[in-house]
Design a protein around this nucleic acid. Structure first.
Ligand SMILES: Nc1ccn([C@H]2C[C@H](O)[C@@H](COP(=O)(O)OP(=O)(O)OP(=O)(O)O)O2)c(=O)n1
Ligand SMILES: [Mg+2]
Ligand SMILES: [Mg+2]
Length: 930
DNA sequence: ATCCTCCCCTAC
DNA sequence: TAAGGTAGGGGAGGAT
C-alpha cells in the first residue's frame, strides 16, 4: 500500500526509519529541558486537574488529614462553608430542640464510624457543636473514631496531641441523655493509654508508597505458579460457567482471539445460602417501596439515608442503641467506608471518563463548530483537511519517558504485577504489543504471552499534565480543535492558508515530543473518518496522509472492525452476513443495512465503508448528562450497606453537578444484578455476568442538591425490589440538565418564577401581581405543562450561546419579554430560593402540601426556616441550605388537589392547575409513583 | 410523527 | 487481590 506514511517527526531517542518532510531537521531528545512548565491554571474541582490534584496531593503528604479523593478539594471548601450557614439556619428551624448540648465541642471524625461522619456532622450541627473537615489542633476538641485497624492506631496516637479520642457513641448517648456526657468512658479502647505527642503531627495516616511497593512486589514475584492450563479461549471476561451456557451474551473483550488462560473455577457452583434471610430482605424492600409509593406521610426512619438533621429529630433516641459502633464493616470491598472515593481515585476508566469535563473547564472557549452543508463531497468546494492526532501508548509513554532503559523493553501499565492477577492492562507499549499484549487484557494473560513484561504503575497526575501540554500545543496551531480524549484530537486545518497539512502535522508532533518527551502519531485526510484511520497506519511515532484517490484502495481490504463505530457486536452481526471487509460491506445496499441495523446505523455503515463521513470538526457541546457508577467491588450484605453506598454515590454525583455548574431533572439509577446461575466472577471483585436494569424519574425542579438526590435515588432504588446481595454494580445518571446560573437567577420569560419571586425584585411586578400572574399562568402553564413536560434549557435557544450565560439575565421587570414566541415553552418551577415566602404562606393548605411534595418535601422546612430569618438574605444562600430534609417525607406527595377547594383567587386556581399538570407529568413519567 | 423509557453499543 | 467509568448515539416499543 503506497500510503504516504512517515515516522519520527519527534523522536530522536529511537530515531526511526523514514523521516517525513526533512523539515524535522534537528530536534534532539534532550530539548526536553527547555520545556515551559505549563502553569497550574487547570480545573477547579476536578480530580486530576493539576491545581486541585497536585495541591491536594502535596498537602496530603504533609497533612494526613486532608481529604484527597476526586473532587475533594472543592468538596471540602463547600462543606466548610456550608456548615456555618446550615448551623445558623438550623438554629432557627426548631430542629435543635435539644439545646446546645455540644456547645464548645468541635469534633474531627477520623476514619470509618458508625454512624457516619456525615451523620455526626449533622448531630453537631443540630446540637450546638462544630464539625471540622480537617484536623486542626486549634479548633478540634474531640477526635471521634471507632475501631481503627491497629496499623492506624499508632498514627492516631501520635497526632491526637492529647485530645480525647472517643467513640461516636459518646455523641449519640449525649443526645439521648440530652446533655453532654463525660467523654472518658467513651475513650477509644485501643488508645486507653493515650499519650499526647505533639511532634509527629503530620504523620501520614495512610502511606501512598504505591509505586515502590508495587515494584518491590514485582521483583519478588514467585514463579511458583505452574497451573498454567492454557486453553484456547476467546473470551476473557466471561465466568467460565457462562462460556458454555450462553451464546448470546456479549463478551466485551475486543479482538482478543489469541491464547488466553482458561481457568477452571469450579468452586461453589452458585448455591443459595440463607434462603430465609434473602426472602426476609426482599420483604423489607417491598415494604419500603410500597410505603414510599403510597401516600404515606410518616416514614420509616430506619431505612433512611444517613442524612443528619432528619434522623436526629426523629430517631435520635433510637439510633444510639440500634447502631453498634464498628461492628459492621461490610460495605463494598472489605468495608472501606470511603470506597466510592478511593475507588475512583484509582480507576483508570474513571480518569479517562472524567477527563472531558476537566478539559471543558480548561478550555471553555465557545468558538463553535462551523456549519457547512456539504463538507465532504466534490473537490469543487475548498477541500477540507483534517488532522487526527493521538499519543502513542499514552499511559506507558508518559511514565517511561525518563526511564530510557525501559524504552525497548515490553512495558505495560497495570495495577498488579501478579502473574495470576486479573487486573487489567491499561496500555502496552509497542514492544509489548509484539507479544500480543493489549489494553484490557488481564495481567495474567499478558504475562503468559510475555513473561518478561515489565509492569509499571499508573501516574494520573502526569497523564493530566501531558494532556494539558498536548492541548496547549494543538490550540496554538489551530482554532478548530475537537478533543476526543486525553491523548487524542481532531484538527480542522482547512483554513490554514498556505500551510501544508502534512507539514503542520509534523510540526505539531515535533513540538509535542519536545514539550512532553512522548511521541504522537497523526493521520491526515479529507474527513475525520479517514484521518482517524490514517493514524492507525501511522503508529507508532509516524504520520500518514490518505489522499482522496487512495481512499478506495485503503478501505477495500480493511477489516470492518477497524471502522470507528463498528465494535464487537456489529462485527459479529456482519460476519453472519459474510461481511468481514469494507469491500464486502459495500456490496450491501443501504436499504438492506438500514433494515437490519436501523436508519442511522445503516447509513453510517454504508457511508463509512466508502470513506464518507460528513461530521464536522467542532467544539465539544455542552454535556447532556452527568453520572457516576461503580461496577467493581460491589458486594452488599444487607440493605443498609447498599443504602450507605448509594448515599455516597449521590454525594459524588451532586458534587459533579455542582462542579459543572448544572442542575438536572431526570435521574436514572442503573443496577447490575448478578445473573441467575452466575457464580463468582473470574475477575477479582468484578461484576461477572449481569442483568442491567435501569429506572428513571423526571422531576419538575432541577436540582444538584445532595439530599434531594439521595431521596430520589433511594426511591428509585426501592422501585427495583431487588435482593441487595445480587447487586454487582450501581450507577446514577442525571440528565435534562440546566445551567445552574440561569436556573437559579435567570427569570424565564414564561415561568412561575417571576410571580413567585420576592417582591423586592420587582416593584412593578408586585403591584401588578394579580393580573399579571393570572394572565401568565394561563398562557404558560395550563397549556404547556399539559402538553409538554419536556426538557428545556432555561433559554429557549439551544443553549450554546454565551450571551445567555453571561449577561442577559433579563431583569425581572422585563418579564413580559414581550410576546416572545417562546411563550409557548415553559420553564420548570423556580428554585426554592426564589419562592416568595409571602405567596407560599398564603397558599391554601392543600396546595401548599402539594407544592411541598413537588419540591421533594423541603418546602416545609424552607418556610419554617425563613420565617425566622431575614427573608432577603436567604435569597442569596445556596439552594442546599434551604433544602433541608423534611423528616423523611416521600419524595412525591400523592395528595390530589381536591375539587372542593374554595378558590377565592384566580391566581390560586391557575396555580392549582399547574400543580395538577405537574402531578400528571410525575406520575406518568415515573413508573414508581402512582 | 414524535415523544419517552429502557436498554444496547461504542470509544477512550 | 484490584480499583470493569463515562457519555453520546441510537434502536425497540409503547404512549400520545
Ligand atoms: N481499554 C483501554 C483503552 C485505553 N486506556 C487508556 C490508556 C491509554 O494509554 C489511553 C489512550 O488510549 P489509546 O486508545 O490512545 O491507546 P494508547 O495511547 O495506549 O495506544 P495507541 O498508541 O494505540 O494510541 O487510554 C485504558 O486504560 N484502557
Ligand atoms: Mg493513544
Ligand atoms: Mg487515544
Amino acid at each position: 500500500m503506497s500510503l504516504n506514511s512517515s515516522r519520527s517527526a519527534g523522536s530522536s531517542g529511537q530515531r526511526s526509519k523514514r523521516s517525513f518532510n526533512s523539515n524535522s531537521s534537528n530536534h534532539s531528545a534532550n530539548s526536553n529541558s527547555k520545556k515551559k512548565k505549563t502553569t497550574n491554571q487547570k480545573t477547579l474541582g476536578a480530580s486530576w486537574g493539576a491545581n486541585s490534584h497536585s495541591s491536594s496531593r502535596s498537602s496530603f503528604k504533609k497533612s494526613p488529614f486532608s481529604d484527597f479523593g476526586s473532587y475533594m478539594v472543592e468538596k471540602n471548601r463547600k462543606l466548610h462553608n456550608q456548615f456555618d450557614s446550615e448551623a445558623s439556619s438550623s438554629s432557627h428551624n426548631g430542629l435543635n430542640t435539644g439545646k446546645n448540648i455540644f456547645r464548645g465541642v468541635s469534633i474531627f471524625v477520623d476514619g470509618y464510624t458508625v454512624p457516619s461522619s456525615q451523620e455526626l456532622r449533622g448531630y453537631m450541627l443540630n446540637y450546638g457543636g462544630r464539625y471540622e473537615n480537617y484536623f486542626s489542633r486549634h479548633r478540634v476538641t474531640h477526635i471521634i473514631c471507632s475501631n481503627l485497624p491497629d496499623s492506624k492506631v499508632k498514627n492516631l496516637r501520635s497526632f491526637s496531641g492529647g485530645l480525647p479520642v472517643v467513640k461516636p457513641s459518646w455523641v449519640l448517648d449525649s443526645i439521648s441523655a440530652n446533655k453532654l456526657l463525660s467523654w472518658v468512658p467513651y475513650q477509644l479502647d485501643q488508645l486507653a493509654c493515650n499519650q499526647p505527642r505533639l511532634s509527629a503531627f503530620f504523620a501520614p495516616k495512610i502511606i501512598p508508597d504505591s509505586g515502590d511497593a508495587l515494584r518491590d512486589a514485582a521483583n519478588q514475584v514467585k514463579y511458583e505458579n505452574e497451573d498454567t492450563s492454557l486453553v484456547e479461549a476467546r473470551l476473557e471476561d466471561a465466568d467460565e460457567s457462562e462460556v458454555c451456557r450462553s451464546t448470546e451474551h456479549r463478551w466485551q473483550i475486543s479482538g482478543e482471539s489469541d491464547n488466553v488462560m482458561f481457568e477452571k473455577n469450579n468452586e461453589e457452583s452458585g448455591q443459595e445460602l440463607h434462603i430465609s434471610s434473602v426472602k426476609d430482605c426482599e420483604m423489607r424492600i417491598v415494604e419500603m417501596t410500597t410505603s414510599a409509593a403510597e401516600d404515606d406521610g410518616s416514614v420509616k426512619d430506619e431505612l433512611q439515608y444517613s442524612t443528619h438533621q432528619t434522623s436526629v429529630s426523629a430517631s435520635s433516641c433510637r439510633l444510639p442503641t440500634s447502631s453498634n459502633a464498628g461492628s459492621n464493616q461490610s460495605h463494598a470491598t472489605l468495608g472501606d467506608p470511603n470506597f466510592v472515593e478511593n475507588y475512583f481515585k484509582s480507576s483508570r476508566l474513571h480518569f479517562i471518563g472524567t477527563w472531558r469535563n476537566r478539559y471543558r473547564k480548561r478550555f471553555p472557549r465557545s468558538s463553535k463548530g462551523f456549519k457547512r452543508t456539504e463538507p465532504n463531497l466534490s473537490a469543487s468546494a475548498s477541500p477540507t483537511a483534517i488532522i487526527h492526532i493521538d499519543m502513542d501508548c499514552f499511559f506507558v509513554s508518559v511514565v517511561i519517558r525518563k526511564r530510557s532503559e525501559l524504552k525497548d523493553r515490553p512495558v505495560a501499565v497495570c495495577h498488579s504485577d501478579s502473574p495470576k492477577g486479573t487486573a487489567e492492562i491499561s496500555s502496552a507499549n509497542y514492544p509489548a504489543r509484539d507479544y500480543g499484549v493489549k489494553a484490557g487484557m488481564f495481567v495474567r494473560n499478558a504475562k503468559a504471552l510475555c513473561p518478561h513484561l515489565v509492569i509499571i504503575p499508573y501516574d494520573f497526575e502526569a497523564y493530566e499534565e501531558v494532556a494539558d501540554q498536548f492541548y496547549d500545543i494543538l490550540h496554538k496551531h489551530s482554532n478548530k480543535v475537537q478533543a476526543v480524549s486525553c491523548d487524542e484530537a481532531f484538527l480542522d486545518v482547512t483554513d490554514a492558508e498556505g500551510l501544508d497539512p502534512e507539514v503542520l502535522a509534523s510540526t505539531v508532533r515535533k513540538e509535542i515530543f519536545e514539550a512532553t518527551g512522548c511521541t504522537a502519531s497523526a493521520g491526515i485526510s479529507r474527513n475525520m473518518l479517514m484521518a482517524r484511520l490514517a493514524t492507525r497506519t501511522a503508529k507508532p511515532d509516524g504520520q500518514c496522509y490518505i489522499s482522496p484517490e487512495k481512499v478506495d484502495d485503503y478501505l477495500h481490504q480493511l477489516p470492518i472492525k477497524e471502522l470507528p463505530g463498528i465494535g464487537y457486536t456489529l462485527e459479529e452481526k456482519l460476519k453472519k452476513q459474510n461481511v468481514q471487509t469494507c469491500g464486502q460491506l459495500r456490496m450491501i445496499s443501504k436499504d438492506s443495512l438500514q433494515k437490519d441495523f436501523g436508519m442511522k446505523t445503516g447509513e453510517m455503515l454504508w457511508n463509512h465503508s466508502r470513506g464518507i463521513d460528513n461530521r464536522l470538526v467542532g467544539v465539544i457541546q455542552e454535556s447532556k448528562s452527568i453520572g457516576a457508577e461503580v461496577n467493581w467491588g460491589v458486594r452488599f450484605k444487607d440493605l443498609k450497606d447498599s443504602q450507605y453506598f448509594l448515599s455516597n454515590l449521590c454525594k459524588e454525583v451532586s458534587l459533579r453537578l455542582q462542579g459543572c455548574g448544572v442542575l438536572g431533572r431526570t435521574f436514572t439509577l442503573k443496577i447490575k444484578k448478578r445473573r441467575k446461575d452466575a457464580g463468582e466472577p473470574v475477575k477479582y471483585m468484578g461484576h461477572g455476568d449481569c442483568e442491567n436494569l435501569s429506572h428513571s424519574v423526571t422531576v419538575p425542579v432541577a436540582t444538584d442538591d445532595v439530599e434531594v438526590l439521595q431521596r430520589i435515588a433511594k426511591q428509585l432504588f426501592g422501585s427495583f425490589s431487588i435482593d441487595v446481595k445480587e447487586i454487582r454494580g450501581i450507577g446514577l445518571q442525571v440528565s435534562k440538565l440546566e445551567n445552574a446560573d440561569t436556573s437559579k437567577q435567570g427569570f424565564g420569560k414564561n415561568s412561575l418564577k417571576s410571580w413567585l419571586m420576592p417582591a423586592s425584585r420587582s416593584r412593578e411586578e408586585q403591584s401588578n401581581f394579580h393580573s399579571v400572574a393570572g394572565e401568565r399562568v394561563n398562557v404558560a402553564f395550563t397549556v404547556d405543562h399539559l402538553t409538554d413536560c419536556e426538557d428545556r434549557r432555561t433559554d429557549g435557544t439551544s443553549g450554546q450561546l454565551c450571551d445567555d450565560s453571561l449577561g442577559v439575565q433579563t431583569p425581572v421587570g422585563n418579564h413580559q419579554s414581550s410576546g416572545e414566541p417562546t411563550l409557548n415553552q415553559v420553564s420548570a418551577p423556580p428554585p426554592l430560593c426564589h419562592l416568595d415566602l409571602g405567596v407560599i404562606e398564603c397558599l391554601p393548605p392543600e396546595i401548599f402540601t402539594e407544592l411541598n411534595g413537588i419540591y421533594g418535601g423541603v418546602l416545609v422546612d424552607f418556610v419554617a426556616k425563613n420565617k425566622r430569618e431575614n427573608t432577603s438574605a436567604t435569597v442569596s444562600h445556596k439552594q442546599a441550605n434551604g433544602a433541608r430534609n423534611g423528616g423523611g417525607r416521600p419524595l412525591f406527595n400523592d395528595v390530589v388537589p381536591g375539587n372542593e377547594i374554595a378558590v377565592e383567587n384566580e391566581v390560586y386556581n391557575e396555580f392549582k392547575i399547574f400543580l395538577t399538570s405537574i402531578q400528571q407529568c410525575l406520575s406518568l413519567s415515573s413508573g414508581i409513583c402512582h
